[in-house]
Design a protein around this nucleic acid. Structure first.
Lengths: 151, 151
DNA sequence: GTTGAAAAAACAGAGGA
DNA sequence: TCCTCTGTTTTTTCAAC
């Protein structure tokens, strides 16, 4: 992981479909060299996946919420979370609660119904997402492109 | 947005680099037809982005947390969030607090330092992420592949 | 929506600095 | 580790159906 790798990741993170040739131009490397570095990062697990981001609203998912959960039966609860399509994310957290969930549903009514399903697993607080200032920021910030200047 | 489009999205969501030809085979459509549908969904904003998922741990980000925030100066606070690389997500929420942030940092020490920076904007509670059961679930679930059967 | 053909581009591999 | 060169595969674009 040197600066060239970081630079490759910087460009890939918001454009997974960049060709190796274009990527090479962006980081001042030949196409085979870029390909080799990308493969290496894929194998090392630095690159986990290439994902297509779909607009939830455009496919009818108009409601999102976070749920702070307190359960006494973690294993059953985790099974429930994994099998519920509404639960997009599930974290074990410190503090008064056990788990934090991110839930995505068609409507607030559906959120409410999902809440009913949760009742048997413990106590929770629902925090409705009213709006997102931003729901994602790239991990690798603008640059550290010293390596680009050296040619 | 018919079932074929959903099927295309289903395959693309966890593999953004699928070629149009392969995609065509998966959804029983010719390559030009797939290309046209994908372009349409890109223009409509159904497809927002093609993202490369990078392992935070592998690039030295070993600490994550959620912060429940209560501020009196929303605009200044949002500026602060946008300009802080640690803040990966920022939501306006219902309940006792104003905002929910997801914060990613190198270490818990860095989380603490980030907390100090936040002091001037209001009150907050930090919920440290101890582990992720899962931090992502695909929006489009397994199938609805009725259309695949009809040929 | 399909097929098919031609032009352009991307990719994988070998050999060498 | 990187480069250039080359052959092969893929994409793309365009026709006609």
């Amino acid at each position: 992981m040197d600066n060239v790798d970081r630079n490759i990741l910087y460009h890939l993170q918001h454009n997974a479909r960049l060709s190796r040739t274009e990527l090479g131009k962006l980081v001042n490397l030949s196409q085979p060299a870029v390909t080799e570095r990308v493969h290496r990062m894929e194998e090392q697990g630095v690159i986990k996946e290439y994902r297509t981001i779909i607009s939830p609203e455009k496919i009818g998912k108009h409601a999102a919420a976070f749920m702070l959960f307190h359960t006494k039966n973690c294993l059953a609860f985790l099974d429930f979370c994994r099998s519920s399509p509404e639960v997009a994310e599930c974290y074990r957290i410190s503090g008064d609660h056990n788990y934090l969930l991110k839930v995505i549903a068609d409507s607030t009514q559906d959120l409410e119904e999902f809440g009913n399903l949760c009742d048997s697993y413990g106590n929770y607080t629902i925090l409705i997402v009213m709006s997102s200032a931003f729901d994602h920021k790239d991990l690798i910030p603008d640059h550290e492109e010293e390596n680009l200047l050296s040619e």
